[in-house]
Computed example of a mutant assay.
Amino acid sequence: MRRRLLDDRGSVTAEFAVALPAIVLVLMLSLGALAAGMTAVRLQHAAAESARLFGRGDDDRARAVVAGIGATASVGREDTLVCVDLSAPIPGPVPLGPLTARSCALDGGG
């Protein structure tokens, strides 16, 4: 009888069952952070490129850049600058708010 109380059969299975959800959670958060970082870099690059294109007066190509990454854009002109604000949702299984990027360039296109 005493031998059965000290038996640790099944303890590895129980520990695995407790640790598995934590491992999955850490993996999901890591993938979400990676996706957010990649989206932020793409947004900033697209905002800078489209601001330069809007500044040159090449509106069609600037809109194509924004549409190519699946973002929404708002364009504003202030004094001698054209500023582009981009917004896009973070892809992935974790629903997070949208990321935004802003870039301005000299307005030479009129």
Rank of each mutant, 00 (worst) to 15 (best):
G110R: 13
L86Q: 04
L6E: 12
V84M: 08
L81H: 02
A71G: 07
R56L: 15
V84L: 11
G108L: 05
P98G: 01
L34M: 14
G68Q: 01
E49T: 14
G70D: 12
V94R: 03
G57I: 02
A73S: 14
R102M: 07
L106M: 09
L5H: 09
T72W: 10
G76W: 06
V41S: 05
D8H: 14
D85F: 01
D8L: 15
S74N: 09
R77E: 06
A14Q: 10
V82D: 04
P89L: 00
L31V: 07
I69L: 10
L34G: 15
A48V: 13
A46S: 13
T80Y: 06
L34K: 05
M38Q: 12
R63P: 06
G10M: 04
I23G: 05
G109F: 10
G70N: 14
R102I: 07
G70Q: 04
R102P: 07
V26T: 15
G57Y: 03
A67I: 00
V65H: 02
P95H: 01
T80S: 06
D59Y: 08
S74I: 10
A36K: 10
P89I: 00
L99Y: 08
L25M: 15
S50G: 05
D79S: 11
L96M: 11
P95K: 02
G109C: 08
A17P: 04
A51Y: 04
L29P: 08
L43R: 01
I69C: 05
A33G: 06
A88F: 02
V66T: 06
D60S: 12
S103P: 03
A64L: 09
V18E: 03
G37K: 01
L96D: 07
R2T: 08
V75D: 04
